[in-house]
Design a protein around this nucleic acid. Structure first.
Lengths: 195, 195
DNA sequence: TCAATATACTCACTGAGTAAGTATATGATG
DNA sequence: CATCATATACTTACTCAGTGAGTATATTGA
């Protein structure tokens, strides 16, 4: 019986594939350096171990998003230089201009990463990203609230869970609105950081 | 070279092992039924597929937390009945009276589940759970804020991430305080649900 | 009658994530 | 001067998380 191949899953957007692609979009690098930059620039957002970094790079290469080349170094273990392929670039750009659902974690992790790369690579995308994310959250809140009315009243904890999610999304909305204002006025987000 | 065995990892508390143990603490059941009850009572909190349910049951049995017995049924595929072992009971009780860290997801998912089982099995634990969780979050906010001052100012997105986490934890604190009040007054959480 | 649905579970796979191992060069410390 | 920690750079081998497809049978309803 022929086993159906899963057609290269879209890969949970909460895996650090995209930050790695983003770092490679800025410049080619080898794994060790990528890991360092990731920890440096995004250490409070993502944690991945060094070996996990290599795992992901291997997968990205297998998928054709990046291409690696061995580089001999004298007096040093040889290392593998990676660069983004056209396909990987394409994939990254699509990701960069997309919107996450309304999970607070996804916003904190994925959206923030996206915002960082947008700011550094395509700043013109920033206002649209903020706007669409706000719309997305608003409609998410709506869905949660209408979902809540459909739950039977005896499912107390299911209802509490939905309620909690709504109460988590509200401050996200405020935060995004502040980001919008800061970007419009200053072209950066420093204001958010210094009250 | 002898490979060191990893000594049965404590298993991320965000895996649905504990809700399954909890359901089995209420009464013995077979996998299919457990899955149904899980989706019924906690469908807005956990999603696990049927096969994942079986995976976890298999692991729990291997670990000795539950014991399964095959049960022949006439005119039916035979099924496997699981019950909690003493060891599993012990493990569940320890979990039931413990505290999650201050990740908002962990609170929504794990804490809420814990609260549900505490209410149904050991209601006397509820006030302590709420109180300790509040303390935990307060100290978490403190840690995040002090962490923020230690980050170099150029790490804008790392700082934004910490800030966001703080702004997510504040409403959790309010919510827990409301829960405390509701429990003190009514012995349930209905008030939280009807604004 | 026969198709959909419910019951009940297995298998094989990809992906997430870690620990430990392999090498080599450099700088600090006694 | 020896040696010991640390930084560079990557591999191997493992467990756990999670999904999709497959197997098998009985019931219900159109």
């Amino acid at each position: 019986m022929m086993m159906m191949m899963t057609p290269t899953k879209p890969a949970s957007n909460l895996s650090p594939e995209y930050p790695l692609l983003g770092l490679l979009a800025q410049k080619p690098a080898h794994g060790y350096e990528l890991h360092q930059r990731l920890m440096q620039d995004f250490g409070q957002i993502w944690y991945i171990s060094l070996s996990q970094t290599y795992n992901i790079l291997k997968r990205l290469e297998k998928q054709g998003a990046i291409a690696g080349e061995d580089e001999q170094q004298e007096n040093r273990p040889s290392r593998r230089f990676f660069r983004l392929t056209a396909e990987g670039r394409q994939r990254f750009e699509v990701w960069l201009d997309s919107t996450v659902g309304c999970s607070t974690r996804a916003i904190r992790v994925e959206f923030l990463t996206r915002l960082a790369f947008a700011e550094s690579i395509h700043p013109e995308l920033v206002p649209g990203l903020l706007e669409r994310q706000i719309v997305e959250i608003r409609s998410g809140i709506g869905r949660l609230e209408s979902g809540m009315t459909k739950l039977p009243p005896e499912q107390v904890y299911n209802r509490l869970a939905l309620k909690l999610r709504v109460r988590q999304l509200a401050p996200m909305l405020d935060w995004l609105t502040e980001c919008q204002a800061a970007w419009r006025e200053d072209g950066n987000f420093n204001k958010i950081l210094s009250p």
